[in-house]
Amino acid sequence: MLKIEGLTKRFGGFTAVNAVSFEVHKGEILGLIGPNGSGKSTIFNMVSGTLAPTGGSIRFAGREIAGQPPHRIINLGIGRTFQIPRPFRRLSLVENVVLAGYYGQGRRSRLKAFEAAERALGLVGLPTDRAASVEGLGAAALKKLELAKALATEPKLLLADESLSGLDEHEMDQAADLLRRICRDLDITIVWVEHIMGHLMRVVDRIIVLDHGEKIAEGQPAAVANDPRVIEVYLGTQAAAMRAVAGTGRA
């Protein structure tokens, strides 16, 4: 579905992403992990069109999309959420999602946009009444709003950026289950970036590990967790947690 080859991004003399290649298969949840600064978000920004790559290719459904503007990429069917939620405070909660539903689906119809928004809000568990405001939403609700906006564009591929950061244990569990459900029930392929690994291991089908802008491992969660290079990168508690989760098998 998505094929990335030799993807490179340099900022001046600094290489944020160095010749990364991987593929995303239809129907899977692919986890993209790595410590802070490993290039995960940069890859997302290139796939979604926010940044233009320095080199390499990004093919989506057989079509080269590297360097295309964000609005075009969304209309091809790639939705994304942001690490830091970006609600539009001058719009109501529903309007936020309707906006995405309208412009993210090639401005087809207002009615469809409202329907898509209602479905997306219902799915993530946010109120659908017209009067609801964005003001006063907590971290968890803002994450849900991000997800609802991305879903309202009816993507084929969803790029979820750090959906768990800033959430408590219970909320993390819920959010991870929600992504699983979106993948299974809506038939949306997901690439999930996270640096908290425990919850991600439970839900994803495959994992890619990045470090300093390079891919250092790829495979089943259990195999990746036991990879010596990955353990080296994730020294300490997180590696232990990974092995513990992988050892008990996936739920």
Binding site: H71, I74, R86, Y103, Q105
Partner: peptide, 13 residues
Amino acid sequence: SEDEDGAAATGVH
């Protein structure tokens, strides 16, 4: 008017 990048990311040209 609030966030051009954010708007572009929801599909707005």
